[in-house]
Write a protein that binds this DNA or RNA. Structure first.
Length: 480
RNA sequence: CGGGGCGUAGCGCAGUUGGUAGCGCGCGUGGUUUGGGACCAUGAGGCCGUGGGUUCAAGUCCCGCCGCCCCGACCA
């Protein structure tokens, strides 16, 4: 049997139409479904379980870095939202408004939060009085609404789930450290749990968060060669503190404004996992977050009772340590199940049939590389652990190689255009630092500056756009 | 908001010059099967997106509306 024959028929091959592959994969694997509400999806149990796993791993990291969870209102009075000028201007076009309560028109419109800086700052101004009240380290798990013109499941939906951290500090230095620390938490999380290699760096003035002093981000490369912003962390400076009047009395008796940060990742990460690891059979989920890490598929044969019995015992052995499922459905053939769980991206398949029962073994098949091995049932517990770890590593390495192979350095505009057309991916190029050049390049090529990377951003030539002396070497890409 | 596409059974689709709706998958029931998406038998399931028009007759032709998807412009 060739690879071609194995391809799941219901999923459009990614070479043919990547976008359709993405949609087909999501729908067929039951991660999500479209609803009657424009731009809004349902997170079906399998997709929600994936998000819950991401949540708990992230939440653990937030707690470890001293943050506490809280929950702020969904509604933001218009007057609050309007306080920070740059912020409103950034979000105004995509805010959903509540104008009525029942039949009665509200005295003041309420925005459905597109992000919570304003409502949170309004509370911080109440809570912060003294240097002793700082820092405030709060995180919120929430849904937000942005009235997007065009939507795609997970990547851009009218309503999405995310977390937003909001902190307040007494010094600029501390705020900057927090901003960078949380970016690094994100980097570590996506690399070690989601197996997504990323480029970390700073956003340009043009690309930064509305109202921020500086924005940092991690950028990942998808299999179609487009970049995806996987997480952002903002140093808000004192912009919000000034308009929301968040002041504290310092040790020296002076009234001072706090320095703030905010940072977030969203369910978009699910999209990143799909588009980084998936193939024409469907999903490939990293073991650390896969809702099902291993599936046991019994092959009943003539002595089905014995096989089923042994399969149940195997599940008992594994279930304390791994997210394992036993598929006892008698209506589907084993072959059907093989394809189904491969499509669903389950990292490891455990087959047990009459032959295995006789030999006291099981057959293990890896989703990441298709490798098939037999192992004694006595060693199953340890072997599963080792394999899951190995799959996780291998998935990261594969994605890493892909990203490296699709990262190109160019030194003039023609080369830049050629690479974008032929090879796509990340393109490193010298840039003079002007917004004019950044926009001109975007106009001509649809590529944006994804970030000014922390590593390897020393210029080694002239700006590919205007030809003047470059100040930075930055990462360009066409992005989602 | 521009360009394109699509609305017919749960899903995917077919439906000829207009003549009163069909296929595949899925679903129910009974049985045989089960090591890479099994098979036989037998069932259930439709206001053909919506409003108007043409016609003896509209899924089909004409006009409007609504919705959804894709690709762009703008954004996690």
């Amino acid at each position: 049997m060739t690879d071609e024959d194995q391809v799941v028929k219901e999923i459009t091959p990614m070479e043919k139409d990547f976008s359709q592959w993405y949609i087909d994969t999501i729908l067929k694997t039951e991660l999500a479904d479209y609803t009657t509400v424009r731009g809004c999806i349902v997170f079906r149990p399998y997709g929600y379980a994936l998000w819950e796993n991401m949540q708990s791993l992230l939440d653990k990291r937030f707690k470890e870095t001293g943050h506490k969870n809280a929950y702020f209102p969904l509604f933001i009075p218009e007057s609050l939202l309007n306080k920070e000028v740059e912020h409103v201007e950034g979000f105004a076009p995509e805010v959903a408004w509540v104008t009525h309560g029942g039949d009665e028109e509200l005295a003041e419109r309420l925005a459905v939060r597109p992000t919570s800086e304003t409502i949170i700052c309004s509370m911080y101004s109440k809570w912060v009085k003294s240097w002793r009240d700082l820092p405030i380290l709060i995180n919120q798990w929430a849904n937000v609404v942005r009235w997007e013109k065009s939507t795609r499941p997970f990547l851009r939906t009218s309503e999405f789930l995310w977390q937003e951290g909001h902190t307040a500090h007494s010094t600029e230095k501390e705020a900057e450290q927090e901003t960078l620390r949380m970016l690094d938490v994100y980097r570590d999380f996506v690399e070690s749990e989601l197996a997504l290699p990323v480029i970390a760096g700073r956003k340009t003035e043009n690309e930064k968060f509305a109202g921020a002093l500086r924005t940092y981000c991690i950028e990942a490369l998808m299999k179609d060669g487009k970049a995806l912003q996987a997480g952002t962390s903002h140093n808000l400076g004192q912009h919000f503190a000034e308009v929301f009047d968040i002041q504290y009395l310092d040790k020296d008796g002076q009234l001072k404004y706090v320095w703030q940060t905010s940072w977030g990742v969203s369910t978009r990460l699910i999209g990143a996992v799909i588009m980084t690891h998936g193939d024409n059979k469907g999903l490939k989920l990293p073991p650390r977050v896969a809702p099902i890490q291993a599936v046991i598929i019994p092959i009943p044969g003539k002595e089905s009772a014995v096989v089923y019995d042994r399969a149940k015992k195997l599940k008992e052995t594994l279930k304390g340590a791994y997210r394992v499922e036993l598929d006892m459905n008698d209506e589907k053939t084993p072959g059907w199940k093989f394809s189904e769980y491969e499509m669903k991206g389950v990292p490891l398949r455990i087959e047990i049939g009459p032959r295995d029962v006789k030999k006291n073994q099981v057959v293990l098949v890896r989703r990441d590389n298709g490798e098939k091995t037999s192992v004694s049932q006595d060693e199953l517990y340890e072997t599963v652990g080792k394999l899951l770890e190995d799959i996780q590593k291998n998935m990261y390495n594969q994605a890493k190689s892909f990203t490296e192979e699709n990262t190109h350095t160019v030194h003039n505009f023609d080369e830049f255009k050629d690479v974008l057309e032929d090879k796509k991916g990340f393109v490193k190029a010298n840039w003079c630092g002007s917004t004019e050049c950044e926009l001109a390049i975007k106009e001509k090529t649809m590529a944006t500056i994804r970030c000014i990377p922390f590593e390897d951003s020393e210029p080694d030539g002239n700006c590919i756009c205007c030809g003047k002396k470059a100040t930075k070497k930055v990462v360009f890409a066409r992005a989602y």
